[in-house]
Amino acid sequence: CHSECLGNCSQPDDPTKCVACRNFYLDGRCVETCPPPYYHFQDWRCVNFSFCQDLHHKCKNSRRQGCHQYVIHNNKCIPECPSGYTMNSSNLLCTPCLGPCPKVCHLLEGEKTIDSVTSAQELRGCTVINGSLIINIRGGNNLAAELEANLGLIEEISGYLKIRRSYALVSLSFFRKLRLIRGETLEIGNYSFYALDNQNLRQLWDWSKHNLTITQGKLFFHYNPKLCLSEIHKMEEVSGTKGRQERNDIALKTNGDQASCENELLKFSYIRTSFDKILLRWEPYWPPDFRDLLGFMLFYKEAPYQNVTEFDGQDACGSNSWTVVDIDPPLRSNDPKSQNHPGWLMRGLKPWTQYAIFVKTLVTFSDERRTYGAKSDIIYVQTDATNPSVPLDPISVSNSSSQIILKWKPPSDPNGNITHYLVFWERQAEDSELFELDYCLKGLKLPSRTWSPPFESEDSQKHNQSEYEDSAGECCSCPKTDSQILKELEESSFRKTFEDYLHNVVFVPRKT
């Protein structure tokens, strides 16, 4: 048989008469490798580009789960590009990614509803959504962080984005990388972005840091009482949809009607710091009717980097990364020049730590249904340095008659930039024990000054392991946590139920 035959053949030295091919099969003959313009397919066939392209389009058009959109890589027609490569849609070739590779997620039936953290986790790592997304989240724990972890990498949506009755959302900033909504599939009414009845939605994105392009379709905003109209108009300008909307697409009466839409800028007039305090004062603000001013709200939190936005980490279910302080308005003076500047002394802060701070007014709604208010920009203030805590785990070892090696770990709280350490030492008198000992005694162990690591005695271990207080009263049991108490109650309830079950099964009433 021919060298490319495997198993047997019907005619000697003829690659077209093989029972099976050793390498690849091409047009009725066995070959060692697939010549151009053919590609290896499933490690035994040679196919042309049209064959591989037909497989790709067949799966793409069917949208069946589990099928493969075949691509070409290293002269092979394979189910998908290997790690580190992405497909070129024009020629199906796998090309190296520039940075992290995109991950295209194809949605069944063309859309997916995100109504819980669990459903959001199914899209973790996706960068391109081939379909439409509907966000409908009523509640949950730590929602802002969970949504950002699972949806934060999405850069492109081919269909539309719909935010509907998501009472738990305060902001859409968890879509931190969303840059493009194509609108290839539109919501009824030709809408590519749809926001309806979101009672706590206050911000779409921080438009000073976020760009969003909507290729096709219109915007729809109705019944978002805490979303200011200025935020919607800003989205029109940034996304390129200005002029597409009709009169009733953006409701003037049901958007922002319960919001404090600040239209003035508060400026800080005085800032002073110490290692654990920050004193702030800002310019006074009074609405047209000074009785509408209820006070100020001061927001602050630790910020290692200057990239904080107002609604980071917030949701309507209680999660809030900001510390909020309510401040009463100052006494009002008739003389504008003698107006008191409101302020606040922030206490209990960490030394040498940068804080993000902003302040906003708290006002009631005027009778004319106009909203007044003022808010400052987010500023960054760093507390002063102070003395560091003591170095940890000092170790001293003498390696000769004239040297001592000293080692330690950095302090747990540096409280500033540590530039150097101060080492103090003092000579001590020799131990009298060394002169009084009889060095001729056998088995004498000389006193040693070398360091030995501390260890816990058996008594201390027994005390720590004991669940009861000892007789001397030195140790006591740790208080039980809520989960331990709940577990004990469940076990007790189970024992009672099981005992009742045994009584009912074992003891049967005697027939009379």
Results as ranks from 00 to 15, higher is better:
F296S: 02
T185C: 02
P411F: 02
S158Y: 10
R370P: 11
I135R: 02
K103F: 05
L178Q: 00
R272F: 15
P287M: 11
L204H: 01
L349T: 02
L362C: 02
L169S: 10
L108K: 09
K253Y: 10
I114C: 04
R247E: 03
N224V: 01
P304R: 14
S260L: 10
I181H: 00
I157H: 01
G295K: 14
L294Q: 04
E146D: 07
I379M: 14
S400R: 11
T383S: 03
S402R: 13
G125P: 01
A144Y: 05
L265T: 07
F220R: 15
I378S: 01
V363D: 05
S321I: 07
Q382K: 11
D249T: 15
I278S: 00
G110F: 12
A356K: 02
Q382E: 10
F311I: 08
T241I: 09
T323W: 14
V104L: 08
E237I: 12
I379K: 07
Y380R: 05
F193D: 01
V324E: 15
Q121N: 10
N320V: 03
F193W: 04
D115F: 04
F220K: 14
T215R: 13
V117C: 03
S173A: 10
L229G: 03
S338E: 13
A195G: 12
W207Y: 04
M297T: 02
K360P: 00
Q216T: 12
F221P: 00
L151S: 01
Q216I: 05
S208W: 10
S402C: 03
L227I: 12
G243W: 03
L406S: 03
R247H: 13
G131R: 00
S239R: 06
N190L: 08
F175N: 00
A251E: 07
V128M: 08
D197N: 15
D367V: 15
K103V: 08
K350Y: 15
T353S: 12
E155I: 14
Q216L: 09
I154A: 09
P304H: 10
L133M: 08
D257K: 14
T353N: 02
Q354A: 09
C105Q: 01
W344Q: 12
C317P: 09
V390S: 03
L151Y: 01
L349I: 06
S398L: 02
T113W: 12
H341W: 09
T386V: 09
L362G: 04
P342I: 11
S274C: 07
N255L: 06
W322P: 02
Y191A: 10
S260K: 05
T323D: 05
K209W: 08
K209I: 15
L392I: 06
Y285P: 02
T323S: 07
D326I: 07
E155M: 06
P329A: 07
S192C: 02
T361E: 08
N263F: 02
G243S: 06
I114M: 08
A120I: 06
F174Q: 01
G183N: 01
L123P: 01
D367T: 10
L362N: 05
I129C: 09
S192V: 09
A303D: 12
F358S: 10
F175S: 00
R291V: 11
R176A: 06
N136I: 02
L161G: 00
P330Q: 11
P342A: 09
P394L: 12
I157T: 01
E148C: 05
N307P: 09
P342F: 10
E368S: 12
G240L: 15
K301P: 00
G313V: 12
S401H: 08
S398T: 15
A316I: 01
L331N: 14
E262V: 05
W282R: 00
D335S: 15
L107S: 09
N248K: 13
S333C: 09
S274R: 09
K226P: 02
A316N: 10
R347I: 05
K301T: 07
G295A: 15
Y355L: 01
N334V: 04
T254Q: 15
A385M: 09
D206T: 05
G189L: 15
V117M: 15
R370M: 03
V390R: 14
R138A: 08
P225E: 04
L123E: 01
E111S: 10
R244G: 10
E264L: 10
E264R: 10
L279Y: 15
N263H: 04
T361F: 03
N307T: 06
I271Q: 14
T127A: 03
H106P: 08
K253R: 07
F268Y: 05
L147N: 02
A251K: 09
N334H: 15
G131A: 04
G343S: 07
L169G: 02
E310H: 14
Y300D: 00
V381A: 05
D115W: 01
K350C: 14
N399A: 12
L331Y: 05
G159W: 01
T118F: 12
I378C: 08
Q203D: 13
I134F: 10
E264A: 03
Y372L: 12
L298P: 00
Y380A: 02
N387R: 08
G313Q: 13
